[in-house]
Design a protein around this nucleic acid. Structure first.
Length: 284
DNA sequence: CGGTACGCCTGAAGGC
DNA sequence: TGCCTTCAGGCGTACC
């Protein structure tokens, strides 16, 4: 499940391959992954140009869980992997072990040699958005996102949580408040900060938002370094699996003893999402 | 405002 | 072994 650390790791693993790469052609096999979905009916003419055909990739940018490939003329494609999405660079004779659900393929000439960049997403919760410029991406899509969780500082987090009466766990998952946190890292950060997932966001003490901000940065940085979490089938831009799943301290461990106090971890539902916490370390 | 439910979609995992 | 059911999840939207 790609969250911020997986996308950041993906960005780092793809940057040396994609920056400076010429996009020779694009094949969009499933037009409906290009968002927004076409209004009206009939086949929509897909503009290869909008998807960077003929351009040269100049830089990659990330905000929360989204990755943008930006061409030197400003055109860009913004990619969201949803929960089963995968972006991979393949060398000329390299094949995916399972080539089903490949929705878009860019044929590129990279500084590292020729190859293809493929977007694969079995569940299709992900998608592609195209924009003529980074300004438009910021205005139309990224303006709605909160500050990035990888670098969030205590005063900023405190300001974001102060305005909402929801459970802190739900607030953390709201991309408009803080960008990049998904179910796994929300639970991990709350455990790290010793905050109960049902605590009201606007009632957190300053010391708690301080602990939460550093727990968020810590868990994000650590997971980026480990190459992300491999859950089900996450792999990076070159097919390598992440190692952070081994270090999950609460996520997916309901019933197991807490690594800090040995009390059995509790599984509950918060805002419709599976949530695991330690009833002893994370007091209400 | 917040919370709840649903739809989207597939495959892994569990039950029998 | 194989079939069937359940669940997971990000995010938009509808509704109470």
């Amino acid at each position: 499940m790609p969250e911020l650390p997986e996308i950041e790791h993906l960005k780092r693993s793809l940057a040396p391959i994609l920056i400076g790469a010429d996009v020779r052609s694009v094949r969009l096999r499933r037009p409906d992954v290009l968002r927004p979905a076409p209004a009206g009916r009939g086949p929509r003419r897909t503009s290869g140009r909008a998807l960077l055909a003929g351009g040269r990739i100049d830089r990659l940018d990330r905000r929360g869980k989204q990755l943008a490939l930006i061409a030197d003329d400003g055109r860009l494609v913004c990619i969201h992997l949803g929960m089963s999405g995968e972006l991979r660079f393949l060398e000329p004779r390299e094949r995916l072990s399972d080539a089903r659900h490949v929705h878009c393929t860019w044929t590129i000439d990279s500084p590292r040699g020729p190859g293809r960049l493929v977007f694969r997403d079995p569940r299709r919760f992900g998608g592609l958005w195209t924009f003529p410029s980074a300004d438009e991406l910021d205005r139309q899509r990224w303006s709605g996102l909160g500050p990035d969780a990888l670098t969030i500082r205590a005063p900023v987090l405190a300001a974001r949580t102060a305005g909402t009466r929801r459970a802190i766990k739900s607030a953390l998952l709201d991309q408009r408040l803080i960008a990049g946190v998904g179910n796994i890292y929300a639970d991990e950060a709350l455990f790290g900060a010793r905050i109960h997932p049902l605590r009201r966001a606007d009632k957190l003490a300053r010391t708690e938002t301080g602990r939460l901000a550093s727990a968020l940065r810590g868990v994000m940085r650590c997971a980026v370094a480990a190459g992300g979490s491999t859950l089900r089938d996450y792999v990076d831009g070159r097919g390598r699996r992440g190692g952070f799943a081994l270090r999950h301290r609460v996520y997916g461990r309901a019933g197991e003893p807490c690594v800090r106090c040995r009390a059995p971890l509790i599984g509950i539902e918060v805002g419709g999402r599976t949530t695991v916490y330690c009833p002893s370390c994370q007091e209400v």
